[in-house]
């Protein structure tokens, strides 16, 4: 952290950052000005919130936001519980078939979820969970990535810590919750970020499995603006896109330091 960044790298970093920011800046510009100023840059252009009003009038976005919020927190909570337990078993217990079972879980990492969509749909339909948030969440709660990540982390925890806890009279559950989980905190934060942003943006599966306003997440709701026939109303789309991604953006900006640090510690790059 000492000394200045070499000028060439600074320039390159700025250039990349601007390139990455350009679409968001455009969306911001388009969202807060009347449509006439879409392609004309004029500092004195009148500001307006009409685009946001029109976007929110086009679909029940408050309901969609609530659905998405319940969905991502529900999935994350279930993933934490399931993955922690499974990862602990794979990391610290020796049982018959452990190797085979674990490699089966790794296989799941290699398969794109879209390939399994038809099979998943049939299962969800049999369970009677079509058009429910539980149905959207179910295929994702047993996350292979989560199990793999936590198992690797748990294995790095020195055995001596566990033995010390056992000598102090801790039960298995206490060992897990008091020793392993606190040590893996950065990994939980990093995994949580990946999971939340993935499910916040997930589109195809929720579209297929939901059919009513009370279950559809915000990404599916955004479809209301995708009518190709009519031409595209960039101002309203920009407003809607900004409004729906705002919670994630703001959340990230607030906790940026924690996220970046946890990524460095967790060793995910």
């Amino acid at each position: 952290m000492s000394g200045r960044t070499p000028p060439l790298e600074a320039v390159a970093a700025w250039a990349l950052a601007l390139l990455w920011l350009a679409p968001i800046l455009f969306a911001f510009w388009a969202a807060i000005h009347p449509p006439e100023y879409l392609t004309k840059f004029d500092v004195t252009a009148p500001l307006t919130l009409v685009n946001f009003e029109r976007a929110f009038a086009a679909a029940p976005f408050a309901q969609y936001m609530l659905n998405t919020a319940i969905l991502v927190t529900g999935i994350l909570a279930a993933q934490f519980v399931l993955c922690t337990l499974a990862a602990y078993a794979f990391a610290r217990y020796e049982f018959r078939g452990a190797g085979v079972l674990f490699s089966l879980i790794l296989v799941q990492l290699m398969v794109a979820p879209e390939v399994l969509m038809v099979e998943n749909y049939a299962t969800i339909a049999k369970l009677g969970l079509v058009d429910s948030l539980a149905g959207v969440a179910a295929p994702y709660v047993a996350s292979a990535f989560g199990i793999f990540l936590l198992r690797q982390t748990f294995r790095q925890v020195p055995k001596a810590l566990e033995e010390a806890a056992v000598i102090e009279g801790a039960s298995t559950m206490q060992v897990l919750l008091r020793v392993y989980v606190p040590l893996a905190k950065p990994v939980y934060v990093a995994y949580g970020l990946v999971s939340v942003s993935f499910h916040w943006n997930n589109f195809l599966w929720p579209l297929v499995v939901t059919s009513s306003e009370t279950t559809r997440p915000v990404t599916v709701g955004l479809q209301v603006f995708a009518s190709v026939d009519q031409g595209v109303d960039w101002a309203v789309i920009s407003a809607a896109a900004l409004a729906t991604s705002a919670p994630l953006l703001i959340g990230f900006l607030l906790f940026q330091r924690a996220f970046v640090q946890s990524f460095m510690r967790a060793g995910i790059r």
Binding site: V118, E119, Y121, A122, A125, L207, V208, Q223
Partner: peptide, 15 residues
């Protein structure tokens, strides 16, 4: 495009 994807998935999924 989304509608045909959803419809075919539903048909294959016996729903």
């Amino acid at each position: 495009q989304d509608t045909i994807a959803r419809t075919l998935t539903q048909i294959r999924g016996n729903d």
